[in-house]
Simulated scan of single mutants.
Amino acid sequence: MVSKDNGTFLTVAEVAELMRVSKMTVYRLVHSGDLPAVRVGRSFRVHQQAVEEYLGSSVYSADKTG
């Protein structure tokens, strides 16, 4: 079953710009499985929600003790 609202799929370049990293970093995240992507021909598309979830789970809190 296909949902009517599939959301937005972003190119690697768009993901890199959104995350403020290089395209190579995005490719590494995709190939390592840390960032799920769909292969379309020879390129990848990443769901915008996957980017948001990745960034949300990657929040780092510095411990000031020690």
Rank of each mutant, 00 (worst) to 15 (best):
M1K: 10
M1I: 06
V2N: 10
S3Q: 14
S3T: 06
S3R: 13
K4F: 07
K4H: 10
D5S: 13
D5Q: 12
D5M: 12
D5V: 08
N6Q: 14
N6R: 12
G7K: 06
T8M: 11
T8E: 12
T8L: 11
T8A: 12
F9Q: 11
F9E: 11
F9H: 07
L10H: 04
T11K: 06
T11M: 05
T11W: 03
V12H: 02
V12K: 04
A13N: 07
A13P: 00
E14G: 02
E14K: 10
V15P: 00
V15L: 05
V15R: 05
A16E: 05
A16P: 00
E17Y: 02
L18W: 02
L18Y: 06
R20K: 13
R20N: 14
V21Y: 00
V21R: 08
S22V: 03
S22G: 09
S22P: 03
S22H: 08
K23Y: 08
K23W: 03
K23H: 13
K23I: 11
K23V: 11
M24Y: 07
M24L: 14
T25H: 09
T25K: 11
V26M: 05
V26E: 04
Y27D: 09
R28Q: 15
R28L: 15
L29D: 10
L29W: 05
L29F: 03
S32N: 13
S32W: 04
G33D: 06
D34H: 08
D34R: 13
L35G: 01
P36L: 11
P36G: 09
A37T: 00
A37Q: 02
A37R: 02
A37C: 06
V38K: 15
V38Q: 15
R39G: 10
R39Y: 00
V40S: 13
G41H: 01
G41D: 01
G41K: 01
G41P: 02
R42K: 13
R42Q: 11
R42P: 02
R42Y: 03
S43I: 08
S43F: 07
S43H: 08
S43C: 11
S43Q: 15
F44Y: 15
R45V: 03
V46Y: 05
V46A: 12
H47S: 08
H47N: 13
H47T: 00
H47R: 13
H47W: 04
H47I: 04
Q48D: 10
Q48I: 08
Q49T: 07
Q49P: 01
A50M: 05
V51R: 06
E52W: 09
E52C: 11
E53H: 06
E53G: 05
Y54S: 09
Y54L: 15
Y54Q: 07
L55R: 14
L55H: 07
G56A: 13
G56V: 01
G56K: 07
G56T: 02
S57N: 14
S57H: 08
S58E: 09
S58P: 00
S58H: 07
Y60P: 02
S61W: 07
S61A: 15
A62L: 15
A62D: 12
D63H: 09
D63Y: 03
K64N: 14
K64D: 15
T65N: 14
T65W: 10
G66P: 01
G66W: 08
G66L: 14
